[in-house]
Design a binder for these strands. Structure first.
Lengths: 215, 215
DNA sequence: GACGCTATTGGCGCATCGTCAACAAGTTGC
DNA sequence: GCAACTTGTTGACGATGCGCCAATAGCGTC
């Protein structure tokens, strides 16, 4: 009994961690669970259990289950884009091709989480989630504009940005075809993304400028 | 008192409807509520209340809240696409342009519900919802293949279908830009969708065929 | 080794969901 | 016309999940 008491003292039932550390630990489990199942199919109890804590602590750190979810969404989008190396040079097609390659390279290591983030569409609007995704899209648009070398002060900038956002949706969908369904090889995906963006910039934007000048 | 009794008999508290009728009534309310709020923010109690029935009846007809939700998703995708009129003729660009116009015409009356259906979710996979959306996408792919006049037995069909699915994602995103954010005019949207599909078929598919023949 | 700070717990109250037996609105048979 | 049957509909029960908060117990500090 004395031995039991000693070992119990040596390994206390609750371990007290630094707030940041504990928060990170819970968030990590939440990312994994929300990544593999939908919102309603994940309970805060389960998240807490996986993190080795009680449910109350989850609420203590993140307030609400929904708030935790939003943090997870934000976190998952923080993956790529940190190492924006030197801008590519050369012809439009060369620059676009290089950028597409860079994108594919940066996605493939985090394939699983990336797919989860950009995953499903459904019914029911969620303004908060939409705002986070929109923010990430805006960053992507900036990258594309920089890669193709377009002046952002020119008239028609808003329209071009909208079109690039739409192009971004195709990028996501096509990349899912590659990573998830394996219906496209990397080369085929690369061809699609490059060709589409080149056509967008060279043809569609040109038509746009002509139409704007005509009126 | 006798009069009250008579009026009560004339207007009974519960009205007994035909199953299909009641089911449709509940489903209608569910469509509206799920259209304007996200899944977790809609309770079956509220749906029942809006339909003028009790919660138990909702479960009786649809089993589970989730099952009801899936029925809603399916229903919302039932765009009156039945009226697939005669296939357009003329050059590739003309046929694509006509098809894009037809699509935009058929979407705009149901703008609100359509936007709700194609709204992006966030994190968390939902295989059931994905299956429904995939089914609808496949129908759309068939329409596109018919419009551009591609033989479905040719080699590389799977790759082309995948690329058209990706194009479909761009169509949805761009249409949302038009309907929701008003960042594109209908003409600009039409230009984008037409130009992109023409480029996809004329350039990308051509490259694809060349690459396939080379190996 | 005692003290204080605070990370952590456990439980309370409330809302929602799925199930089911009982009830009553219509319908049919006589 | 009334009675019996069918079945659409209700109301309540148990279970689960979530937000909140006072009590508890690690861990650093003097």
């Amino acid at each position: 009994m004395a031995g039991a008491a000693v070992s119990a003292a040596a390994a206390p039932l609750r371990r007290r961690l630094a707030p940041d550390e504990r928060r990170e630990q819970i968030l990590c489990c939440a990312v994994r669970l929300f990544g593999e199942r939908r919102y309603s199919a994940v309970s805060t109890t389960e998240i807490a259990a996986q993190a080795g804590v009680t449910r109350g602590l989850v609420n203590h750190y993140f307030g609400t289950k929904r708030e935790l979810y939003l943090v997870v969404v934000r976190r998952m989008l923080r993956v790529p884009g940190s190492a924006v190396t030197a801008l590519p040079t050369g012809s439009l097609r060369t620059r676009v091709s290089t950028s597409v390659d860079w994108f594919l390279d940066s996605v493939s290591p985090h394939a699983r989480t990336w797919v989860a983030v950009t995953a499903t569409e459904g019914v029911g609007r969620d303004p908060d989630v939409e705002a986070i995704l929109a923010e990430a899209d805006e960053v992507a648009v900036e990258h594309v504009l920089a890669a193709v070398g377009l002046d952002r002060t020119l008239p028609g900038d808003e329209q071009r940005r909208a079109m690039i956002r739409a192009y971004g949706a195709m990028v996501k969908a096509a990349t899912r075809e590659w990573l998830l369904r394996d219906t496209l090889s990397r080369d085929e995906l690369h061809l699609l993304l490059t060709q589409s963006l080149v056509s967008l910039v060279r043809d569609t934007f040109a038509h746009l400028a002509v139409a704007a000048a005509a009126k």
